[in-house]
Structures are given as structure tokens and as C-alpha cells.
Amino acid sequence: MSRLRSLVKLALVAVALGLVATPVAAQSLNRAAIDELNTQLLYVALPLTLFVELVLFYAIYRFRDNDDPKPTTDDPALEITWTVATAVILVFVGISGYYVLTNPYLTPAVAAESGDDAADMEVEVVAYQWGWEFRYPEENITTQNRLVVPQDRDVRLVMESEDVIHSIYVPDLGVKQDIFPGQEQVARTRATETGEYDLYCAELCGTGHSRMNGQVVVMTQSEYDAWVDAKTSPNGSATAVSATNNSTNNSTATAS
């Protein structure tokens, strides 16, 4: 009996902690939508888990050492109740998931179909074995393995692969999109917190897959403008031509 009470108390504590825990602020609108969905599902899953576990513990305790078990009697009202409750939960989960899937920051095709795919800026992303190239057409800048974007601005990533299937993945920003050779893929994000975030290739793409990493740097608008000025000045460290040449040299050196 004491063990049963301990298990019940532990379950109640776990549910309480899950309900009162405050999630870390999301770093982008993408991540905010994902975190909100996870929170909604948590509020459904925790009480349901607790209820199932309590029923299980009750059945174990109530019917222990039962030498004369009897078949369960029919209870249509109970069966209808749990069927309706299950249907309501599934409808809630389905609606919540649908609204997230139709979020233009998570499914850019939705924004394109509705004609609302305009963004404050566009960056061309080229994935290759085994690195990333980011081109800024308006600023005539190209960088390697380092994506720099301003805070609180819609950024549209137009991506292509030079060789095999790659996948851009930025966990902290909630960005993940497969990139297929010969096809143009689009991702969209709006970073709300400045900082540096890790970027990975999430698709096995060859022997150098594990080192196909990069960084996303989110700056304030003034810092981003200063960065652009530094890159486009005569003494800038990365122009479109020089960066492209570096990319070619890096690819050749890796292959050799």
C-alpha cells in the first residue's frame, strides 16, 4: 500500500512540474509555433497518462490475489463515454497539428499558394559536399558556412544542392528542410533573438557528412547594416567573387 501511494505521489509531482514549468523563450517564429504545439499536447498527454496509470494501479491493488475472477460486465454508457472522450482528444490534436502545418514559417508552400510568400530579404543557399554557401543577391555578398540575418525580419531561403541530397537544420530556430539536387527548395524564418545558432546537415550525404556544419548569426538591424557595409567595402573580407573562388578551392581540396 505504501508503495502504491509513493507511485501516485510521484505521478502527481511529475504532472504538476510539467504544468507549471515555463518553457525557454523561442528564438524564432518557427520555433515558437513548434513549442506552442508541444505545450498543447503536453497539457493533454499528462492528465491522460496520470489517469491511465491511476486506473492501472487501482486494478493491481483492488484485484490482487483474486482467486475467483469474474468476467467484466457490459457497460454501454462507459464504453460510449471513453469512445467520445478519445474522439474529442484526437480532434483537438488534429486541429492543433493542422494549424502548425499551415504556418507559413513551417510550410512555405502554404504561403506561396496564398500569395503571401513575400519576405523582407532573400538568401540563396547552395549545399555541396561538404559545406554551405550563402549568397545575398541584393548586397552582392557570399559567405561560407555562416548565415548572417537581421533580427525581426522575414528571411526567405532559396536552396539548391550541387550534388546529393542535403538537409539544412537549425534546431534553435526551428528550421529544417531537405534540399534535392536539380530542385529549388524554400524555407522561411524570422529570428526574434540575437545570437549564434548551430546549423547542421541532417541528411547523410557522404563521408564528410559529420563535418558539414555551419552557424546562423542573428544581429540587430544596425549590426547587420554595419556587417554589410564592411563586406561590401573595398577592404571587405568576403565579396561574391572571392567567396565563390574560395568555395571552389575548398571543394577541390576536400575531394583531393
Rank of each mutant, 00 (worst) to 15 (best):
L173Q: 00
A253P: 04
M1I: 05
D154T: 10
L12P: 00
A85L: 15
R156I: 07
Q183C: 03
W132H: 09
I34F: 01
Q27R: 11
T232P: 00
T39I: 15
D120Q: 00
N38P: 01
Y61S: 12
V24A: 10
Q151R: 13
A45C: 15
P76M: 03
D229W: 04
Q151P: 02
V175N: 00
V148D: 07
A109D: 03
I34V: 15
A230N: 07
I165W: 12
S251G: 07
L173D: 02
A26C: 03
S237L: 12
E196Y: 03
L17W: 10
A16Q: 10
E133G: 06
Q27D: 03
L7E: 15
V186A: 02
E196M: 08
T73I: 08
F134K: 03
P71E: 06
P137V: 11
F92V: 07
Q144W: 06
W132Y: 09
A255I: 06
F63Q: 05
M1P: 04
R188A: 06
S237A: 12
D178L: 12
P71R: 06
D74C: 04
W82C: 10
V170Q: 01
N246T: 11
A112E: 11
E79Y: 11
T252H: 09
D225S: 01
R5A: 14
L48Y: 14
V55M: 11
L7K: 13
A16D: 11
G94A: 13
Q151S: 04
Y136W: 08
R3S: 15
A118M: 05
E162H: 11
L41S: 06
L12R: 07
A112I: 05
V84W: 09
A119P: 04
N66A: 07
R146L: 13
G131H: 02
E139F: 09
L19Y: 12
E162D: 14
T83W: 14
T194H: 04
L54E: 05
V20Y: 10
Q144F: 08
V217G: 01
T107R: 03
L54F: 09
V125Q: 02
G195Y: 07
Y99P: 00
T102G: 00
V216I: 08
D198V: 09
T83V: 14
Y99L: 14
S6K: 12
A32F: 06
L19P: 06
D68T: 12
V175L: 04
S28H: 01
P171G: 00
T142A: 13
I89N: 07
G94K: 02
I89Y: 10
V110K: 06
K231C: 09
A112L: 02
A87H: 02
Q215G: 04
A87E: 04
Q215Y: 04
D229K: 13
N250G: 14
D163L: 03
F51S: 11
Y136V: 02
K231E: 14
D75V: 02
S251C: 08
V88T: 14
E113D: 07
E124N: 07
D154N: 05
I165C: 08
P181M: 07
S96D: 13
